[in-house]
Design a protein around this nucleic acid. Structure first.
Lengths: 236, 236
DNA sequence: ATCTTTAAACGTAAAAATTACGTTTAAAGA
DNA sequence: TCTTTAAACGTAATTTTTACGTTTAAAGAT
Protein backbone atom coordinates (compact mmCIF):
# COMPACT_ATOMS: atom_id res chain seq x y z
CA UNK A 1 0.00 0.00 0.00
CA UNK A 2 2.16 2.87 -1.28
CA UNK A 3 0.96 6.48 -1.40
CA UNK A 4 0.27 7.47 -4.98
CA UNK A 5 0.94 10.97 -6.19
CA UNK A 6 -1.40 12.29 -8.89
CA UNK A 7 1.43 14.36 -10.34
CA UNK A 8 4.40 13.30 -12.46
CA UNK A 9 7.98 13.68 -11.41
CA UNK A 10 9.69 16.54 -13.21
CA UNK A 11 12.86 14.67 -14.11
CA UNK A 12 11.33 11.60 -15.77
CA UNK A 13 12.91 10.99 -19.14
CA UNK A 14 15.29 13.95 -18.92
CA UNK A 15 18.62 13.30 -20.64
CA UNK A 16 21.83 14.32 -18.88
CA UNK A 17 24.42 16.30 -20.83
CA UNK A 18 28.05 17.25 -20.23
CA UNK A 19 28.45 20.79 -18.96
CA UNK A 20 31.68 22.73 -19.23
CA UNK A 21 32.89 26.21 -18.44
CA UNK A 22 35.30 28.16 -20.64
CA UNK A 23 37.15 31.26 -19.54
CA UNK A 24 37.99 34.30 -21.60
CA UNK A 25 40.84 35.94 -19.70
CA UNK A 26 41.71 39.54 -20.61
CA UNK A 27 44.84 41.34 -19.55
CA UNK A 28 46.56 44.63 -20.35
CA UNK A 29 50.27 45.09 -20.98
CA UNK A 30 50.31 48.88 -20.73
CA UNK A 31 49.27 49.57 -24.27
CA UNK A 32 47.33 46.63 -25.64
CA UNK A 33 44.45 44.47 -24.58
CA UNK A 34 45.59 40.88 -24.32
CA UNK A 35 43.91 37.49 -24.26
CA UNK A 36 45.26 34.44 -22.50
CA UNK A 37 45.06 31.27 -24.59
CA UNK A 38 46.26 27.72 -24.11
CA UNK A 39 47.60 24.84 -26.13
CA UNK A 40 44.96 22.15 -25.93
CA UNK A 41 46.39 18.95 -24.48
CA UNK A 42 43.47 16.58 -24.94
CA UNK A 43 41.91 14.94 -27.95
CA UNK A 44 40.07 15.78 -30.05
CA UNK A 45 41.95 18.83 -31.35
CA UNK A 46 45.03 18.40 -29.15
CA UNK A 47 47.77 20.92 -29.97
CA UNK A 48 45.40 23.65 -31.18
CA UNK A 49 44.91 27.00 -29.42
CA UNK A 50 41.99 27.11 -27.05
CA UNK A 51 40.42 28.94 -24.16
CA UNK A 52 41.01 27.36 -20.79
CA UNK A 53 38.07 25.45 -19.39
CA UNK A 54 36.87 22.53 -17.35
CA UNK A 55 33.93 20.25 -16.98
CA UNK A 56 31.51 21.15 -14.23
CA UNK A 57 31.52 18.58 -11.47
CA UNK A 58 28.34 16.99 -10.25
CA UNK A 59 28.28 18.89 -6.97
CA UNK A 60 29.89 22.10 -8.09
CA UNK A 61 28.19 25.32 -9.18
CA UNK A 62 29.02 26.67 -12.63
CA UNK A 63 30.31 29.94 -11.19
CA UNK A 64 32.45 27.95 -8.79
CA UNK A 65 33.80 25.90 -11.66
CA UNK A 66 34.84 29.04 -13.52
CA UNK A 67 36.37 30.53 -10.36
CA UNK A 68 38.24 27.32 -9.77
CA UNK A 69 39.74 27.41 -13.25
CA UNK A 70 40.79 31.04 -12.87
CA UNK A 71 42.38 30.63 -9.47
CA UNK A 72 44.12 27.41 -10.49
CA UNK A 73 45.76 29.07 -13.42
CA UNK A 74 46.61 32.41 -11.85
CA UNK A 75 46.96 31.68 -8.16
CA UNK A 76 44.82 34.79 -7.59
CA UNK A 77 41.49 34.55 -5.77
CA UNK A 78 39.70 37.84 -6.33
CA UNK A 79 39.42 38.11 -10.07
CA UNK A 80 36.79 40.18 -11.83
CA UNK A 81 34.56 37.67 -13.61
CA UNK A 82 31.17 37.69 -15.30
CA UNK A 83 29.15 35.08 -17.06
CA UNK A 84 29.13 35.72 -20.79
CA UNK A 85 26.77 33.27 -22.45
CA UNK A 86 25.82 29.64 -22.56
CA UNK A 87 26.69 27.87 -25.82
CA UNK A 88 24.57 24.84 -26.49
CA UNK A 89 24.56 23.93 -30.14
CA UNK A 90 24.54 20.13 -30.29
CA UNK A 91 27.21 20.22 -33.02
CA UNK A 92 29.57 22.60 -31.24
CA UNK A 93 31.81 19.80 -30.00
CA UNK A 94 32.22 16.94 -32.42
CA UNK A 95 33.41 14.55 -29.74
CA UNK A 96 30.40 14.61 -27.43
CA UNK A 97 27.32 16.59 -26.51
CA UNK A 98 28.75 19.33 -24.35
CA UNK A 99 27.20 22.63 -23.48
CA UNK A 100 29.59 25.31 -22.37
CA UNK A 101 29.02 28.27 -20.13
CA UNK A 102 31.54 30.97 -20.98
CA UNK A 103 32.86 33.44 -18.43
CA UNK A 104 34.99 36.49 -19.13
CA UNK A 105 37.44 37.90 -16.65
CA UNK A 106 39.88 40.75 -16.20
CA UNK A 107 43.19 40.27 -14.50
CA UNK A 108 45.95 42.63 -13.53
CA UNK A 109 48.81 41.25 -15.60
CA UNK A 110 52.25 41.66 -14.29
CA UNK A 111 54.05 42.10 -17.61
CA UNK A 112 57.02 40.21 -16.19
CA UNK A 113 54.91 37.18 -15.46
CA UNK A 114 54.09 34.84 -18.29
CA UNK A 115 53.69 31.55 -16.47
CA UNK A 116 49.98 31.10 -16.31
CA UNK A 117 49.56 27.38 -16.11
CA UNK A 118 47.03 24.76 -15.34
CA UNK A 119 49.12 21.70 -14.71
CA UNK A 120 51.51 21.81 -17.64
CA UNK A 121 49.35 23.48 -20.27
CA UNK A 122 51.29 25.90 -22.40
CA UNK A 123 49.78 29.37 -22.34
CA UNK A 124 50.45 32.67 -24.06
CA UNK A 125 49.17 36.22 -24.08
CA UNK A 126 48.10 37.42 -27.50
CA UNK A 127 46.93 40.81 -28.76
CA UNK A 128 43.18 40.76 -29.23
CA UNK A 129 43.64 42.12 -32.74
CA UNK A 130 45.95 39.25 -33.67
CA UNK A 131 43.94 36.28 -32.49
CA UNK A 132 44.74 32.92 -34.04
CA UNK A 133 41.88 30.57 -34.81
CA UNK A 134 40.72 28.77 -31.69
CA UNK A 135 39.13 25.33 -31.31
CA UNK A 136 35.38 24.69 -31.41
CA UNK A 137 33.35 27.88 -30.98
CA UNK A 138 35.98 29.58 -28.83
CA UNK A 139 36.69 32.33 -31.37
CA UNK A 140 33.01 33.19 -31.34
CA UNK A 141 33.12 33.36 -27.57
CA UNK A 142 36.05 35.74 -27.64
CA UNK A 143 34.35 38.06 -30.10
CA UNK A 144 31.24 38.15 -27.93
CA UNK A 145 33.40 38.73 -24.85
CA UNK A 146 35.18 41.68 -26.46
CA UNK A 147 31.83 43.24 -27.27
CA UNK A 148 30.58 42.62 -23.76
CA UNK A 149 33.73 44.11 -22.31
CA UNK A 150 33.30 47.28 -24.39
CA UNK A 151 29.68 47.53 -23.38
CA UNK A 152 30.49 47.03 -19.71
CA UNK A 153 33.46 49.40 -19.73
CA UNK A 154 31.16 52.10 -21.06
CA UNK A 155 28.90 51.90 -18.03
CA UNK A 156 30.86 50.37 -15.15
CA UNK A 157 34.29 51.27 -13.78
CA UNK A 158 35.97 48.06 -14.82
CA UNK A 159 38.96 49.53 -16.60
CA UNK A 160 40.52 49.54 -13.13
CA UNK A 161 40.45 45.75 -13.01
CA UNK A 162 43.13 45.61 -15.69
CA UNK A 163 45.71 47.89 -14.08
CA UNK A 164 47.47 47.94 -10.71
CA UNK A 165 45.72 49.22 -7.58
CA UNK A 166 47.81 52.38 -7.87
CA UNK A 167 47.95 53.90 -11.32
CA UNK A 168 48.44 57.11 -13.26
CA UNK A 169 45.84 58.92 -15.36
CA UNK A 170 47.72 58.26 -18.61
CA UNK A 171 47.74 54.58 -17.67
CA UNK A 172 43.99 54.61 -17.12
CA UNK A 173 43.47 56.45 -20.38
CA UNK A 174 45.55 53.81 -22.15
CA UNK A 175 43.38 51.00 -20.81
CA UNK A 176 40.25 52.63 -22.11
CA UNK A 177 41.85 53.32 -25.46
CA UNK A 178 42.82 49.65 -25.65
CA UNK A 179 39.34 48.48 -24.70
CA UNK A 180 37.45 50.78 -27.05
CA UNK A 181 40.12 50.52 -29.74
CA UNK A 182 40.00 54.24 -30.45
CA UNK A 183 41.74 57.42 -29.39
CA UNK A 184 40.28 59.28 -26.45
CA UNK A 185 40.90 62.97 -25.90
CA UNK A 186 43.00 63.15 -22.76
CA UNK A 187 41.63 66.52 -21.61
CA UNK A 188 38.02 65.41 -21.86
CA UNK A 189 38.86 62.07 -20.28
CA UNK A 190 40.53 63.78 -17.32
CA UNK A 191 37.55 66.08 -16.79
CA UNK A 192 35.04 63.25 -16.91
CA UNK A 193 36.92 60.88 -14.69
CA UNK A 194 37.83 63.54 -12.12
CA UNK A 195 34.31 64.94 -12.01
CA UNK A 196 33.06 61.51 -10.93
CA UNK A 197 35.01 61.86 -7.71
CA UNK A 198 36.00 58.22 -7.88
CA UNK A 199 39.74 58.74 -7.91
CA UNK A 200 41.87 59.34 -4.86
CA UNK A 201 45.04 61.26 -5.66
CA UNK A 202 48.14 60.13 -3.80
CA UNK A 203 51.21 62.24 -3.11
CA UNK A 204 53.34 59.98 -5.22
CA UNK A 205 54.43 60.12 -8.82
CA UNK A 206 55.39 57.49 -11.30
CA UNK A 207 58.50 58.79 -13.05
CA UNK A 208 59.09 55.82 -15.29
CA UNK A 209 57.56 57.44 -18.37
CA UNK A 210 58.53 61.09 -18.07
CA UNK A 211 60.86 63.51 -16.34
CA UNK A 212 57.97 65.41 -14.86
CA UNK A 213 56.36 62.24 -13.54
CA UNK A 214 52.69 61.44 -13.38
CA UNK A 215 50.63 61.48 -10.20
CA UNK A 216 49.45 58.15 -8.86
CA UNK A 217 45.80 57.57 -8.03
CA UNK A 218 43.68 54.82 -6.59
CA UNK A 219 40.07 53.92 -7.17
CA UNK A 220 37.64 54.89 -4.41
CA UNK A 221 35.65 51.65 -3.98
CA UNK A 222 33.78 52.95 -0.95
CA UNK A 223 32.55 56.05 -2.72
CA UNK A 224 31.59 54.02 -5.78
CA UNK A 225 29.43 51.74 -3.65
CA UNK A 226 27.77 54.69 -1.96
CA UNK A 227 27.07 56.39 -5.27
CA UNK A 228 25.78 53.18 -6.85
CA UNK A 229 23.28 52.75 -4.04
CA UNK A 230 21.73 56.13 -4.75
CA UNK A 231 21.43 55.36 -8.45
CA UNK A 232 24.69 56.71 -9.84
CA UNK A 233 25.89 55.34 -13.16
CA UNK A 234 29.52 55.43 -14.08
CA UNK A 235 30.06 56.49 -17.69
CA UNK A 236 33.05 56.87 -19.92
CA UNK B 1 48.27 -3.53 -32.86
CA UNK B 2 46.15 -0.46 -32.19
CA UNK B 3 47.42 3.09 -32.72
CA UNK B 4 48.09 4.74 -29.39
CA UNK B 5 47.40 8.41 -28.86
CA UNK B 6 49.75 10.19 -26.47
CA UNK B 7 46.97 12.59 -25.47
CA UNK B 8 44.05 12.04 -23.15
CA UNK B 9 40.46 12.16 -24.22
CA UNK B 10 38.77 15.38 -23.10
CA UNK B 11 35.62 13.76 -21.80
CA UNK B 12 37.14 11.17 -19.46
CA UNK B 13 35.57 11.36 -16.04
CA UNK B 14 33.20 14.21 -16.93
CA UNK B 15 29.85 13.97 -15.12
CA UNK B 16 26.64 14.54 -17.07
CA UNK B 17 24.05 16.93 -15.63
CA UNK B 18 20.42 17.69 -16.44
CA UNK B 19 20.02 20.85 -18.51
CA UNK B 20 16.78 22.79 -18.69
CA UNK B 21 15.57 25.98 -20.29
CA UNK B 22 13.15 28.39 -18.61
CA UNK B 23 11.32 31.14 -20.43
CA UNK B 24 10.46 34.59 -19.14
CA UNK B 25 7.61 35.73 -21.37
CA UNK B 26 6.75 39.43 -21.35
CA UNK B 27 3.63 40.94 -22.80
CA UNK B 28 1.90 44.31 -22.84
CA UNK B 29 -1.81 44.92 -22.36
CA UNK B 30 -1.86 48.54 -23.50
CA UNK B 31 -0.84 50.03 -20.20
CA UNK B 32 1.10 47.51 -18.16
CA UNK B 33 3.99 45.16 -18.66
CA UNK B 34 2.85 41.59 -18.06
CA UNK B 35 4.53 38.30 -17.32
CA UNK B 36 3.18 34.90 -18.32
CA UNK B 37 3.39 32.33 -15.54
CA UNK B 38 2.19 28.76 -15.17
CA UNK B 39 0.84 26.44 -12.53
CA UNK B 40 3.50 23.76 -12.09
CA UNK B 41 2.09 20.31 -12.75
CA UNK B 42 4.98 18.13 -11.73
CA UNK B 43 6.52 17.22 -8.40
CA UNK B 44 8.36 18.54 -6.56
CA UNK B 45 6.47 21.81 -6.01
CA UNK B 46 3.40 20.89 -8.07
CA UNK B 47 0.66 23.51 -7.87
CA UNK B 48 3.02 26.45 -7.35
CA UNK B 49 3.51 29.30 -9.84
CA UNK B 50 6.44 28.87 -12.16
CA UNK B 51 8.02 29.95 -15.39
CA UNK B 52 7.45 27.63 -18.30
CA UNK B 53 10.38 25.44 -19.18
CA UNK B 54 11.59 22.14 -20.48
CA UNK B 55 14.53 19.83 -20.32
CA UNK B 56 16.95 20.08 -23.19
CA UNK B 57 16.96 16.94 -25.26
CA UNK B 58 20.13 15.10 -26.10
CA UNK B 59 20.19 16.19 -29.71
CA UNK B 60 18.59 19.57 -29.39
CA UNK B 61 20.29 22.97 -29.06
CA UNK B 62 19.45 25.08 -26.04
CA UNK B 63 18.17 27.91 -28.20
CA UNK B 64 16.04 25.40 -30.08
CA UNK B 65 14.67 24.09 -26.80
CA UNK B 66 13.64 27.58 -25.74
CA UNK B 67 12.11 28.29 -29.17
CA UNK B 68 10.24 25.03 -28.99
CA UNK B 69 8.74 25.94 -25.62
CA UNK B 70 7.70 29.36 -26.85
CA UNK B 71 6.12 28.16 -30.06
CA UNK B 72 4.37 25.27 -28.33
CA UNK B 73 2.73 27.59 -25.87
CA UNK B 74 1.89 30.46 -28.20
CA UNK B 75 1.54 28.89 -31.60
CA UNK B 76 3.69 31.76 -32.89
CA UNK B 77 7.01 31.09 -34.59
CA UNK B 78 8.81 34.41 -34.81
CA UNK B 79 9.08 35.58 -31.24
CA UNK B 80 11.71 37.99 -30.02
CA UNK B 81 13.92 35.99 -27.69
CA UNK B 82 17.29 36.42 -26.01
CA UNK B 83 19.30 34.28 -23.69
CA UNK B 84 19.32 35.77 -20.21
CA UNK B 85 21.67 33.77 -18.03
CA UNK B 86 22.63 30.28 -17.06
CA UNK B 87 21.77 29.32 -13.50
CA UNK B 88 23.89 26.54 -12.12
CA UNK B 89 23.89 26.53 -8.36
CA UNK B 90 23.91 22.84 -7.34
CA UNK B 91 21.25 23.56 -4.70
CA UNK B 92 18.88 25.46 -6.98
CA UNK B 93 16.65 22.44 -7.53
CA UNK B 94 16.25 20.24 -4.50
CA UNK B 95 15.07 17.27 -6.54
CA UNK B 96 18.07 16.79 -8.82
CA UNK B 97 21.15 18.50 -10.18
CA UNK B 98 19.72 20.68 -12.92
CA UNK B 99 21.25 23.69 -14.54
CA UNK B 100 18.87 26.03 -16.25
CA UNK B 101 19.43 28.39 -19.12
CA UNK B 102 16.91 31.20 -18.93
CA UNK B 103 15.59 33.00 -22.00
CA UNK B 104 13.47 36.13 -22.04
CA UNK B 105 11.02 36.92 -24.79
CA UNK B 106 8.61 39.58 -25.91
CA UNK B 107 5.30 38.72 -27.46
CA UNK B 108 2.55 40.76 -29.00
CA UNK B 109 -0.31 39.90 -26.67
CA UNK B 110 -3.75 39.95 -28.08
CA UNK B 111 -5.57 41.22 -24.97
CA UNK B 112 -8.52 39.04 -25.89
CA UNK B 113 -6.41 35.94 -25.85
CA UNK B 114 -5.62 34.35 -22.53
CA UNK B 115 -5.21 30.72 -23.51
CA UNK B 116 -1.49 30.23 -23.57
CA UNK B 117 -1.08 26.58 -22.88
CA UNK B 118 1.43 23.84 -23.00
CA UNK B 119 -0.66 20.73 -22.93
CA UNK B 120 -3.06 21.52 -20.09
CA UNK B 121 -0.89 23.74 -17.92
CA UNK B 122 -2.83 26.60 -16.42
CA UNK B 123 -1.33 29.95 -17.29
CA UNK B 124 -2.01 33.55 -16.41
CA UNK B 125 -0.73 37.00 -17.23
CA UNK B 126 0.30 38.99 -14.18
CA UNK B 127 1.50 42.57 -13.76
CA UNK B 128 5.23 42.63 -13.27
CA UNK B 129 4.75 44.77 -10.18
CA UNK B 130 2.44 42.19 -8.61
CA UNK B 131 4.46 39.04 -9.06
CA UNK B 132 3.66 36.14 -6.76
CA UNK B 133 6.51 34.04 -5.44
CA UNK B 134 7.72 31.55 -8.03
CA UNK B 135 9.30 28.12 -7.59
CA UNK B 136 13.06 27.55 -7.32
CA UNK B 137 15.08 30.54 -8.48
CA UNK B 138 12.46 31.67 -10.98
CA UNK B 139 11.74 34.95 -9.17
CA UNK B 140 15.42 35.79 -9.37
CA UNK B 141 15.32 35.05 -13.09
CA UNK B 142 12.38 37.39 -13.59
CA UNK B 143 14.08 40.23 -11.74
CA UNK B 144 17.18 39.79 -13.86
CA UNK B 145 15.05 39.64 -17.00
CA UNK B 146 13.26 42.88 -16.14
CA UNK B 147 16.60 44.60 -15.68
CA UNK B 148 17.86 43.18 -18.95
CA UNK B 149 14.71 44.27 -20.72
CA UNK B 150 15.12 47.85 -19.44
CA UNK B 151 18.76 47.87 -20.46
CA UNK B 152 17.96 46.51 -23.92
CA UNK B 153 15.00 48.81 -24.47
CA UNK B 154 17.28 51.77 -23.80
CA UNK B 155 19.56 50.86 -26.70
CA UNK B 156 17.63 48.70 -29.14
CA UNK B 157 14.20 49.24 -30.69
CA UNK B 158 12.53 46.35 -28.93
CA UNK B 159 9.52 48.21 -27.57
CA UNK B 160 7.99 47.41 -30.97
CA UNK B 161 8.07 43.69 -30.19
CA UNK B 162 5.36 44.17 -27.58
CA UNK B 163 2.80 46.02 -29.71
CA UNK B 164 1.06 45.29 -33.01
CA UNK B 165 2.85 45.78 -36.33
CA UNK B 166 0.77 48.90 -36.82
CA UNK B 167 0.61 51.22 -33.83
CA UNK B 168 0.11 54.79 -32.72
CA UNK B 169 2.68 57.02 -31.07
CA UNK B 170 0.76 57.17 -27.78
CA UNK B 171 0.75 53.35 -27.83
CA UNK B 172 4.50 53.24 -28.32
CA UNK B 173 4.99 55.80 -25.58
CA UNK B 174 2.92 53.65 -23.25
CA UNK B 175 5.09 50.59 -23.88
CA UNK B 176 8.19 52.50 -22.98
CA UNK B 177 6.56 53.96 -19.89
CA UNK B 178 5.61 50.44 -18.84
CA UNK B 179 9.11 49.07 -19.47
CA UNK B 180 10.96 51.86 -17.71
CA UNK B 181 8.27 52.26 -15.06
CA UNK B 182 8.38 56.02 -15.26
CA UNK B 183 6.63 58.87 -17.03
CA UNK B 184 8.12 59.97 -20.32
CA UNK B 185 7.51 63.43 -21.74
CA UNK B 186 5.45 62.86 -24.85
CA UNK B 187 6.82 65.87 -26.74
CA UNK B 188 10.43 64.85 -26.21
CA UNK B 189 9.60 61.25 -26.96
CA UNK B 190 7.99 62.22 -30.24
CA UNK B 191 10.97 64.31 -31.26
CA UNK B 192 13.47 61.61 -30.47
CA UNK B 193 11.61 58.77 -32.10
CA UNK B 194 10.71 60.76 -35.22
CA UNK B 195 14.25 62.09 -35.63
CA UNK B 196 15.50 58.51 -35.86
CA UNK B 197 13.57 58.09 -39.10
CA UNK B 198 12.59 54.60 -38.10
CA UNK B 199 8.85 55.10 -38.21
CA UNK B 200 6.75 54.97 -41.34
CA UNK B 201 3.59 57.02 -41.05
CA UNK B 202 0.52 55.49 -42.62
CA UNK B 203 -2.56 57.36 -43.84
CA UNK B 204 -4.72 55.66 -41.26
CA UNK B 205 -5.84 56.66 -37.82
CA UNK B 206 -6.82 54.68 -34.80
CA UNK B 207 -9.94 56.35 -33.45
CA UNK B 208 -10.56 54.00 -30.56
CA UNK B 209 -9.10 56.31 -27.95
CA UNK B 210 -10.04 59.79 -29.11
CA UNK B 211 -12.34 61.71 -31.39
CA UNK B 212 -9.41 63.20 -33.27
CA UNK B 213 -7.82 59.84 -33.76
CA UNK B 214 -4.14 59.04 -33.71
CA UNK B 215 -2.05 58.30 -36.76
CA UNK B 216 -0.88 54.76 -37.26
CA UNK B 217 2.79 54.01 -37.88
CA UNK B 218 4.91 51.00 -38.62
CA UNK B 219 8.51 50.26 -37.80
CA UNK B 220 10.96 50.53 -40.69
CA UNK B 221 12.93 47.28 -40.34
CA UNK B 222 14.80 47.82 -43.55
CA UNK B 223 16.04 51.25 -42.57
CA UNK B 224 16.97 50.02 -39.12
CA UNK B 225 19.15 47.30 -40.62
CA UNK B 226 20.83 49.76 -42.95
CA UNK B 227 21.50 52.20 -40.13
CA UNK B 228 22.78 49.46 -37.84
CA UNK B 229 25.28 48.37 -40.44
CA UNK B 230 26.83 51.82 -40.54
CA UNK B 231 27.11 51.95 -36.77
CA UNK B 232 23.85 53.58 -35.75
CA UNK B 233 22.65 53.01 -32.21
CA UNK B 234 19.01 53.33 -31.38
CA UNK B 235 18.46 55.21 -28.12
CA UNK B 236 15.45 56.14 -26.07
C1' DA C 1 -24.69 75.84 -37.59
C1' DT C 2 -22.05 76.60 -33.40
C1' DC C 3 -20.12 75.25 -29.09
C1' DT C 4 -17.86 72.00 -26.10
C1' DT C 5 -14.81 68.44 -25.12
C1' DT C 6 -10.60 65.74 -25.26
C1' DA C 7 -6.68 63.30 -26.85
C1' DA C 8 -3.23 64.22 -30.34
C1' DA C 9 0.13 67.01 -32.32
C1' DC C 10 3.36 70.62 -32.41
C1' DG C 11 7.30 74.20 -30.87
C1' DT C 12 10.69 76.82 -28.29
C1' DA C 13 13.94 78.39 -24.80
C1' DA C 14 17.08 77.14 -20.97
C1' DA C 15 20.31 73.95 -19.10
C1' DA C 16 23.57 70.35 -19.37
C1' DA C 17 26.77 67.49 -21.64
C1' DT C 18 29.95 66.72 -25.23
C1' DT C 19 33.40 67.91 -28.40
C1' DA C 20 37.36 70.16 -30.23
C1' DC C 21 41.51 72.16 -29.68
C1' DG C 22 46.11 75.25 -27.55
C1' DT C 23 48.97 76.48 -23.78
C1' DT C 24 51.52 75.99 -19.54
C1' DT C 25 54.23 73.26 -16.26
C1' DA C 26 57.42 70.17 -13.89
C1' DA C 27 61.61 67.91 -13.86
C1' DA C 28 65.72 65.76 -16.01
C1' DG C 29 69.72 66.09 -18.71
C1' DA C 30 72.66 68.63 -21.82
C1' DT D 1 70.37 78.27 -17.99
C1' DC D 2 68.60 76.05 -22.01
C1' DT D 3 66.29 72.18 -24.13
C1' DT D 4 63.21 68.48 -24.16
C1' DT D 5 59.01 65.92 -23.31
C1' DA D 6 55.14 63.96 -21.06
C1' DA D 7 51.75 65.68 -17.91
C1' DA D 8 48.41 68.86 -16.62
C1' DC D 9 45.21 72.41 -17.28
C1' DG D 10 41.28 75.55 -19.57
C1' DT D 11 37.78 77.52 -22.65
C1' DA D 12 34.53 78.27 -26.45
C1' DA D 13 31.40 76.10 -29.80
C1' DT D 14 28.23 72.58 -30.62
C1' DT D 15 24.97 69.21 -29.58
C1' DT D 16 21.79 66.97 -26.68
C1' DT D 17 18.55 66.95 -23.09
C1' DT D 18 15.07 68.80 -20.37
C1' DA D 19 11.05 71.39 -19.22
C1' DC D 20 6.89 73.21 -20.25
C1' DG D 21 2.38 75.75 -23.08
C1' DT D 22 -0.49 76.09 -27.10
C1' DT D 23 -2.97 74.64 -31.15
C1' DT D 24 -5.65 71.24 -33.74
C1' DA D 25 -8.81 67.68 -35.37
C1' DA D 26 -13.01 65.44 -34.94
C1' DA D 27 -17.20 63.85 -32.41
C1' DG D 28 -21.18 64.84 -29.95
C1' DA D 29 -24.19 68.08 -27.66
C1' DT D 30 -27.02 72.20 -28.00
Amino acid sequence: MSSVSPTQIAYLGAEPILVAVDCIVFGFDGSKLKLLIFKREVDPLAGRWSLIGSFVKKNEGITEAASRVLSELSGIEDIYMEQLHCYGNPQRDSGARVISVAYWSLIKVDPNRTNFHIKNHISTWIDIDAMPGLVLDHSKMVIMAINRLKERAMHKPIGFELIPEIFTLPQLLNVYEAIFQRDIDDRNFRKKIMKSGLLIKTDYKDKSTSKKGSFLYKFNDKRYKELSEIGYNFEI
